[in-house]
Lab assay of single mutants.
Amino acid sequence: QKTCLICGDEASGCHYGALTCGSCKVFFKRAAEGKQKYLCASRNDCTIDKFRRKNCPSCRLRKCYEAGMTLGARKL
């Protein structure tokens, strides 16, 4: 079983350049394409896991970029 690099849930494949679950794939697409700016209410070090991935979109998006996700990457 492969694990999502963002939240640790079961990965569905390589999306936008990183091994992710469906939830993180859709989140990244919407967040990266959108005009909304996300700000962390804490210290930009929130725990992003399967159960808390929706708590801080700022840290989740940062983790996506750190994992190498880009909109230009093709699905592998």
Rank of each mutant, 00 (worst) to 15 (best):
R52S: 09
Y65K: 06
F27C: 01
H15R: 05
D49K: 04
K29H: 12
A18R: 05
D45A: 09
C21W: 02
A32L: 07
D49Q: 04
C64T: 02
Q1D: 15
S12H: 05
Q36H: 13
C21V: 01
S23I: 01
K25C: 13
D9L: 02
C46H: 04
H15F: 08
D9R: 04
S23M: 07
K25W: 09
K25G: 13
A41T: 11
Y16N: 04
T20R: 01
E33P: 08
I6F: 01
Y38H: 05
E33A: 08
A31Q: 10
S12A: 11
I48W: 04
D49I: 04
R74W: 06
R74T: 15
Y16P: 03
A41G: 09
I48S: 05
E33Y: 06
V26E: 14
I48T: 09
C14R: 07
C21T: 01
Q36R: 07
K63A: 07
E33K: 13
Q36F: 07
C64M: 08
K50Q: 10
C21N: 00
K50G: 07
F27R: 00
C21L: 00
C14F: 09
Y16G: 03
S23Q: 09
G8F: 03
H15D: 06
L5S: 13
A32V: 12
K25T: 13
Y65Q: 12
V26R: 14
A32S: 11
Q1A: 07
Y16T: 03
G8R: 03
Q1G: 14
S58H: 08
V26C: 13
H15G: 07
K63I: 07
K25Y: 11
L5M: 05
P57E: 14
R74F: 07
Q1M: 13
E33L: 06
C56W: 00
Q36S: 09
C40A: 01
Y65L: 09
G22F: 04
G22H: 07
D49N: 06
R74N: 11
T47M: 09
L19S: 08
I6E: 02
A73E: 14
A31H: 08
F27M: 00
Y16A: 03
T20G: 03
A41Q: 09
V26L: 13
G22Q: 12
T47Y: 10
A32W: 09
D45T: 09
K37M: 08
G22I: 05
G22C: 10
L71Q: 11
Y38C: 04
D49R: 04
C24I: 00
K63G: 03
A41C: 06
T3G: 09
Q1L: 12
K25M: 13
A41K: 04
Y16S: 03
R74G: 14
K35T: 14
T47A: 13
C21K: 00
A73N: 11
G17P: 02
C56G: 00
C24Q: 00
R52N: 10
C64Q: 02
G72V: 10
N55K: 14
Y65N: 10
Y38T: 06
I48N: 06
H15C: 12
G72H: 11
K37G: 09
T3W: 08
Y38K: 09
A41Y: 14
L71C: 11
Y38L: 11
A31R: 03
S23P: 14
P57Q: 09
K63E: 13
C46T: 02
V26D: 14
K35P: 15
G72K: 08
Q36P: 13
G8Y: 14
K50H: 09
C40K: 02
R74H: 12
I6T: 05
G8L: 07
C59Y: 02
D49G: 06
A73W: 06
N55H: 13
T20S: 14
P57D: 15
S23A: 07
E33I: 14
K37W: 07
L71S: 11
K25S: 14
G72F: 15
K35D: 08
K29V: 05
C7R: 02
